[in-house]
Each structure stands twice: as C-alpha cells, then as structure tokens.
C-alpha cells in the first residue's frame, strides 16, 4: 500500500507538469497585455513597451517558461505583475477562506445528502423519495449565484440574521466564522448535495435489491442496521467516486460563491488575476488547484480499499 501511495504521488508530478505547460501556453496565446493595463490611458506606446520589458514579457516563450519552471522547482511561484508580491504570499493570504468554505460545504453536503439519498432509496416511490429528488433536481439546475442572491436576500436583507458578505477567520471565534460562512456554504453545497443525494439513492436502490440485504433482514437485522451498516457500506464506492469528481465542481463553484459573498479566497484571486492578465498568479493558483485535485483523487482511490476489501493495490 505504501509503495502504491508513493508511486501515485510520484505520478502526480507529470500530471501537474502537463497542467503547468498547458496553462502557460494558453496564457501565452490568449489575448491581453498586462503592460497595457498597467500603463493606463495616458501612456504612450513607448511607455507600454518599457513596462513590458521591465516585466520580462518581451522575452521568448521558452525562455519565460523555463525561467518560471526553474523557480517553481525551487518552490518559488514568482511575483505578481501587478502587486509585486510573491504569488506564494498571495495564495497564503487567500487559502484560509477557500479551505474553510470548501470544508464547511463538504461537511454540510455529506451530512445531509447521504442520509437524504439513503432515505429516498428506502422510501422508494413515496412522496419522500419524490421530494428528495425534486430538491436534488432543483439544487442541480439552479445556478450557484442565483441561490446565493436568494439566500442573501432572505437571511441578510429581509430577516437580518446573517451578514451579506465577508469572511471572519475561525481564530476570531466559531460563531462569527459560521455567521459569515453558512450562506456561502449552503449556496455552494446545494449542487454538490444534489449530485451526492442522487448517486446515493441510485446506488442504494441497486444494493437494497441484492440477496445479502434480504438475508440480513431475514436474520433480523434492524432497518437502520440494514441501511447504514450493510447497504451503505457496499454503496460507498460510487458515492466516494462522485464526491471526488464533484470536487472539481466545488472548486468552480467556489469562484462564483466567493464573488457573490465577497469572500477573499483563491477563487476571487483567480478571477481577478485572469481579468488583469496577472500570469504568475494564474499559473500559481491553477498549479495549486490541479495538485489538490490530483491528491483528492488519490485519497478517493485509497478510500476504495476501506469500503471494499476486495480492492487491492
């Protein structure tokens, strides 16, 4: 197992490298010029050229790529063209809100969606099943920003229970932390919840029709035991898979959610950097996201062995 984990971690390196090369190439060919944005409307073409040269943007593609890559190998993601701050510093400033948001979203989604899916399968064909599925379809088909606005309107503007926007670090207290983050987490989590609830229901329906479930019931195992100990464990592999795949959707959704709720996270950093063509920041954040995504999928693969002992690496 340990050698498998080591091999998988080593295997992430070429994946991340490919992502790095792809993103760098994409940014190189994409239109937009940070020097022109910096110089502003009063600048002459000569001014723009001088700024471009001072930023090293006039160098050939390969020179720029290998220079950047060499620094990445040394743990240096470069310096933001605009803020002149190290990209690692900017990521460090933004990582806590994003990690907090995603963690809370995951906790909320998993703790609600899995029971919902299990209950829907158990009460298959009843109004409970239909209600759960309708909620799932609604959650899946409503854009995150619409959910965000509606939640903010009801709970912040109308009821005045929660703040409209912002982020409070958990170090300033759990309550203020949750007050700021609960609406974004619900907004972001609805899609994820819908995805997990649907897959849980479908897999549970399949598992509940298996012979061993009937046997368990015949042996007198209670309903809760059948559902959560016998059936759910065997339905877990597809659920864990969808949790891993859905993580990408969560990253994408975080970008929108952070904008709607003015959370200073990595999603907003990415959007801002793309809009102003801050290449080092875009490259750094995408590299980080791709690395995290690869690690999450590795975690998912390892969880398979926990739920299904037949799987061996």
């Amino acid at each position: 197992m340990l050698s498998y984990i080591a091999r998988r971690i080593v295997a992430t390196i070429p994946v991340v490298l490919m992502v790095a090369l792809f993103v760098f190439s994409l940014l190189y060919i994409a239109p937009g010029d940070p020097a022109a944005i910096i110089a502003g409307d009063q600048a002459t073409p000569a001014d723009v050229e001088r700024i471009r040269a001072s930023l090293g943007l006039d160098r050939p593609f390969l020179v720029r790529f290998f220079d950047w890559f060499w620094h990445v190998l040394h743990g240096d993601l470069g310096t933001s063209i605009f803020t002149n701050l190290p990209v690692t510093h900017m990521i460090a400033q933004r990582i806590e809100p994003t990690v907090s948001l995603m963690t809370l979203t995951l906790i909320l989604s998993l703790s609600l969606a899995i029971p919902m899916g299990v209950i829907a399968a158990w009460k298959h064909g009843t109004w409970i099943d239909r209600a759960v599925m309708m909620t799932a379809v609604l959650g899946f088909s409503t854009p995150v920003f619409v959910i965000g606005y509606v939640l903010a309107y009801i709970f912040a503007l109308r009821l005045d229970w929660l703040p409209v926007q912002g982020f409070t670090s958990i170090s300033e207290g759990l309550l203020p932390f949750l007050r700021n983050l609960i609406l974004p987490a619900v907004a972001l989590g609805l899609v994820y919840m819908a995805l997990i609830a649907r897959i849980t229901r479908a897999t549970m329906l399949d598992v509940l029709s298996q012979d061993y479930v009937r046997t368990a019931k015949a042996k007198g195992v209670g309903q809760r035991g059948v559902l959560f100990l016998h059936a759910l464990k065997n339905a877990a592999v597809p659920i864990v898979t969808i949790v891993g795949i859905g993580f990408a959707a969560l990253i994408g959704g975080a970008v929108v959610t952070e904008s709607v709720f003015a959370i200073p996270g990595l999603g907003r950093l990415t959007v801002d950097a793309i809009l102003r063509r801050d290449y080092p920041v875009i490259q750094g954040v995408v590299l980080l996201f791709s690395f995290v995504y690869v690690l999450v999928n590795l975690g998912v693969d390892l969880l398979y062995t926990l739920f299904d002992p037949r799987i061996r690496y």
Binding site: Y149, A152, Y153, A156, L157, D160, P163, V164, Q165, G166, S259, V260, F261, A262, P264, R268, V271, D272
Partner: peptide
Amino acid sequence: WQIITDAGTAAAALQQGE
C-alpha cells in the same frame, strides 16, 4: 477599502450598513 466586485452584494452591504 473593501473590495466587493459584485454590484448586488455591494448594494446589499450598503443597505445593511456593513
């Protein structure tokens, strides 16, 4: 200076006194 890029959010924040 709080950077709020979304106009709807900034409007709500002003209305709420945030």
